[in-house]
Design a protein around this nucleic acid. Structure first.
Length: 259
DNA sequence: ATGACGCTCTTAGAGCGA
């Protein structure tokens, strides 16, 4: 079975592309970020026509996350419990599978703008709260996947310009320490379980022909728990939708799991 | 480089993303 993550940068604008992608990539579950849509406007009918269920957690103008899944998710949680937040950034639920329940956590991690800014401080606090909550989630659900737009390039090889961008947003030691903290909980970057082509990225700036020049970052990730690790069969970035007219600036990331 | 490009809210220009 396959699970995927995709920052669509407005579901209203990208809906036809998401539906097209699901027709050719009929994954079991797809985590979406940056819906920029209130829940009342979530296009449930369009996904139901394709045989999918959806749970959304949106807000006006910014942020917003959703899970699209073949089977309805159970025990759905919106945002990090106990962490006061005005921004809709997390949705989690449990997918029943033949191998047992699969906990699916989808996050639109904070961007953080620049080190030293208020937004960066918010990012650090948010990452702290996420890690504490995930520790609990992992204790409760052995089979867990954390997917989303992490807004962290975990290592130098995940950036088109690690020297020029050293210390800037997505590249700071503080952000990378938080990413390693997640790995320390017993999570594994599915993409790095396999040999991958150099300079594989999941986001490219709209400006300056970023995609054409492959000036990108790998900031969209799928992390899997210890119990899932050995069953991961593949993990890839699907660059194809980034070539669409009027694309999202992010490409989907897909992981193939046993079962 | 206070840039670029795209989306939202609102209807000309600001805020934000990454």
């Amino acid at each position: 079975m396959q699970i995927a993550t995709w920052n669509v940068n407005s579901l209203s604008v990208r809906l036809p592309q998401v539906l097209d992608w699901l027709r050719t990539n009929p994954v079991e579950a797809l985590g979406l970020q940056e819906l920029k849509l209130v829940d009342e406007k979530f296009p449930h009918a369009a996904f139901e026509e394709l045989g999918y269920h959806a749970v959304s957690f949106g807000q006006k103008t910014y942020n917003g996350v959703a899970w699209i899944s073949r089977a309805p998710l159970q025990d759905v949680v919106r945002n990090i419990p106990g962490h006061d937040d005005t921004q809709a950034r997390v949705i989690a639920g449990t997918l029943p599978t033949a191998a047992g329940p699969l906990r699916l956590v989808n996050g639109y991690f904070v961007n953080g703008q620049a080190p030293g800014s208020d937004k960066f401080a918010y990012k650090m606090a948010w990452l702290e709260a996420l890690q504490a909550w995930l520790r609990e989630q992992l204790a409760q659900w052995r089979r867990l996947a954390l997917v989303g737009d992490f807004n962290i390039a975990p290592e130098d090889r995940d950036s088109f310009d690690p020297v020029g961008l050293a210390g800037s947003i997505h590249h700071t030691d503080e952000e990378r320490a938080h990413f390693r903290g997640l790995l320390g909980l017993g999570l594994h970057d599915a993409f790095r379980l396999f040999e991958q082509p150099d300079k594989t990225f999941s986001w490219w700036d709209y400006r300056m022909l970023g995609f054409q020049k492959n000036r990108g970052l790998r900031i969209d990730h799928i992390l899997v728990s210890d119990a899932l690790k050995d069953g991961v069969q593949a993990c890839q970035v699907d660059r194809a939708p980034r070539k669409n007219p009027q694309p999202s600036d992010h490409a989907p990331v897909v992981a193939t799991l046993a079962g």
